[in-house]
Every structure is written in C-alpha cells, then in structure tokens.
Amino acid sequence: MSTVNKSIMAYFTTSVGKKQIMALTGLALSGFLLTHLLGNFLILVGADAFNMYAHTLTSNKLIYVAEAGLALIFLTHLGLAFNLTVENKKARPQSYYTKVRTGRGATLASVSMIYTGLVILGFLVSHLMHFKFGPVYYVEMNGTQVRDIYRVVIDYFADPLQAGWYVLAMITMAFHLGHGFQSTFQSFGFNHNKYSPLIKKLGITYAILVSAGFAGLSVWGYLQSSN
C-alpha cells in the first residue's frame, strides 16, 4: 500500500476522522428522512397517489442500489456509534462519584445520543417488518397490479398503541437530530460566531419539523380508521 493510501486509511481510525464520518453519514440519513417524509405526504392526497408513488419507487431497478447505499450508510453510522461509545467508556474507567453538567455545554440530547440511537434502531427494525416486509395486498391501477401499501398503513395505525409507539419514537428521533444536525457542522470545522447559533436553531427546527411530520402522519392514520 502506498504511503498516501496508508495515510488516508489512518483517517478512518482516528478520533477526528471517525467523528467526520459520523457527521457525514448522519447528514446523509437526515437528508433521507426529509425525502421519505415528503414522499409520505402523498398519502394525504389519497390511496391512488400514494400507491402509485410507492409502486414507481420500488419498480425502478435503481432502488436496489439506493437501498444498498442507504444500508451501508446506516450500518457505518451504527457501527461507529458502538465503537465510539466503547472507546469513550474505556477512556474513563473509573467514573466520578459526583458529576454535574455545567449547564453551559452538554444537553440532554447530546448525552443521550447512543440511547436515542438505539430507540431509532429498534424503531427501524419494527418499521421495516411492518411495512416493507409487512402484509402484501394488491390493488389494480391502470391495468397493472400494484401493492396496496396505503391499506397496510391505515391498518397498522388503526391500533392506538402502534400509532403511539410511532409518536414516541419520533419524539426520541427529534432529540437525536437536534444534537446531530448542528454537530455535523462543528465536526467538519464550521464554527462561526454569527452563523453557528443560526445553524443550531436550524437544526432544532429541522428536528422538530421532520419528527412532527412523521408523528402527525401516524396520528392522521389512526384518525382515518376511527372515523
């Protein structure tokens, strides 16, 4: 291996390199969330629009490439999170008898990233099980058989417990995004007296809007069935 390659490989194992990969994968996942949410809003237009959207998306061969890429990004983010947590634990083998947060630095969101992350992981598994790999019904549209994913969604959220779990998971995600989004900029070296506070606000707004969007759709789904 050439020296240059070795030096670049070393990037992936240092603390600064790892935090930047964490940031990059996190930002990519945040971007995915936004597109996912915007697509989901089609459910408000109606069953046909939503089913057609889902059909168009999943019948494109490129979807496999996109899914593999997304899985790789997610697993990298996840793997690094565990690796960093273990390393950080090892960096302080003896914990403090008393330790308080100064109130000027760490936040509930920042200290709970691994826990909120674990909730998101659990959520993702249940989400994929119930929707992507969930029940398959067909409906005919313009002479072709397409999956009636609309029905799967409405059926699922008819259960208030399941709708409630989604709302809780989204609140948890808001905390995760709230620290993650702004953190990305710091990790890549963007820190500015004037713009950093704005980025912080933008990140929190983004976290609340995206999470509220998904949670709102879950509540909407529940209301559809109770009507």
Binding site: K19, R101, T102, S110
Partner: peptide, 14 residues
C-alpha cells in the same frame, strides 16, 4: 488513551 469528541461543549464550559 483520550476519548472521542462528540461535541457536547462541556470542555469549553469548564
């Protein structure tokens, strides 16, 4: 053997 930074900013505060 130092840990990794996760942008808490407790360092700056202390």
């Amino acid at each position: 053997g130092f840990g990794n930074c996760s942008n808490h900013a407790e360092c700056e505060a202390s």
